[in-house]
Amino acid sequence: MRYFVSLTVVLAVLWLGLSGVYKPLLFGLGAASIVLVVWLTERMEVLGAEHDPATLSWRLPIYWAWLVWQVIKSNIAVARAVLDPRRIQPTLIELPADQRTRVGRVTYGNSITLTPGTVTMRLTSDGDGIQVHALLPEAAEDLRQGEMARRVRWLEGGD
């Protein structure tokens, strides 16, 4: 039930933001489309833990701010590597992904891919390992230090 409420709220905000024209008829159409989408989601049985409003905690903006900072730093490193390709030294490394939930592991893998210089190649099927292709040795070293894994665990509600 909680999932339905949060999905409806998200869809309503999205509709209000995208529409920009606020007349009774259009409000009716918007409400109808939201009901239709929620009904379809229920029928398709795709509503799951990702829609849990509890994942949207106050920690998310802090994590995003940190992630954007990481993205900017690694972008500058990769840009320098583009201008001087002799710097690149691609490696494959294995990392533990010991996040508690599946959403946490996916967040971790996605964050690794989002920072340029590292791409997640594979989440091992037993779910507790992650294979990463790193462009620069510094990026690989940063990941081995485990700062990002720690932040994602914190995001999941750890300390």
């Binding site: 993205v71 972008n75 891919t113 920072t115 340029p116 791409v119």
Partner: peptide, 16 residues
């Protein structure tokens, strides 16, 4: 794989 990293620059910082 290295090209993917370069594509990553155009896909993250440039839109940002």
């Amino acid at each position: 794989f290295t090209r993917l990293h370069a594509a990553g620059i155009t896909d993250t910082l440039a839109p940002l």
